[in-house]
Design a protein around this nucleic acid. Structure first.
Lengths: 152, 152
DNA sequence: GTCCTTGCAAAGGCTTTGCAACTGA
DNA sequence: TCAGTTGCAAAGCCTTTGCAAGGAC
């Protein structure tokens, strides 16, 4: 099963650096592996993990998120909602986000043109780019239709 | 003088909606007009305004920022620094940001290709785009050079 | 034993809110 | 008069930190 293999790989990655894959960390990891399409907040992760590990503390979630982010196991996003969101960074594909301001759903996209623009900008500004972030905010088809319904 | 004209225009904009341009609001407005190139945090604005209006309270700054944002007088940015930053939105030009993770300086750029990509994406996803955000994070030339200096 | 890790509670930092007082038309 | 506005302090929210206890090697 893919998830078990992923867990093993990440256990190695942690142990290489002198860290352990504790049950708590594994629970957080599995939450991300089981939700590859979601952009989880710290609180989302906490709630999900707490369901099976009631002894889990929030601080551990935050510490684990920071550790995973450092090791590039997950990546952090800010959609301007007052808290960070995290997603699995298991594949190295850079992608960008389209965020619906009504329902909060997030779509991801890759765009070769964008990557090209980015490389050109890095060159123009003599800038060593280590991360990027492109977000479109607006309203999805679904939410627009709801707006148009009578009574709204 | 341009700034006075801008102030008058915005006074009209406020009064149209039933708001007043109070001395506090004018002080905040002038801070933005006087710093068109900066990306000010709420605390930056507070410090600047407090220098000439010592009675100014933080709450007023936040309330003014929200009001100005609603009226599209300023726009809000989040560079992942734990607080929002605001900039004058007096001209309607959309632009994007290059943020140095070391010195925190921000460069702005416009890019026609990017705008084109954005329009295409809006079409592809049937999305009503009302805002966007492109940020590159990394290290500027200056900070890279400092890193290379002996002793660092 | 030693270092990593944890849960708890307290503290931090940014932002919002309740409220009584004030202001301008 | 009346709605809009303000300063202050308290509260809210997300996140980090101090610390003593627990756990793996």
């Amino acid at each position: 099963m893919t998830i078990n293999r992923d867990v093993d790989q990440i256990r190695d990655k942690l142990e290489e650096k002198g860290y352990r894959l504790t049950p708590q960390r594994q629970a957080v990891l599995e939450t991300f592996l089981a939700n590859p399409d979601r952009h989880l907040s710290a609180d989302d992760v906490y709630s999900i993990v707490k369901a099976t590990n009631p002894e889990m503390g929030v601080a551990t979630v935050y510490r684990t998120l920071e550790l995973f982010r450092e090791l590039h196991i997950i990546s952090e996003q800010d959609f301007g909602q007052g808290m960070s969101r995290y997603e699995c960074a298991c594949d190295d594909s850079h992608h960008h986000h389209i965020v619906c301001l009504k329902c909060g759903r997030v779509w991801e996209f890759n765009n070769a043109t964008l990557e090209r623009v980015e490389r050109q900008l890095a060159k123009d500004y003599d800038f060593d780019v280590v991360g990027h972030n492109m977000q479109l905010f607006g309203y999805c088809k679904n939410c627009r239709q709801k707006e148009d319904e009578p009574g709204h």
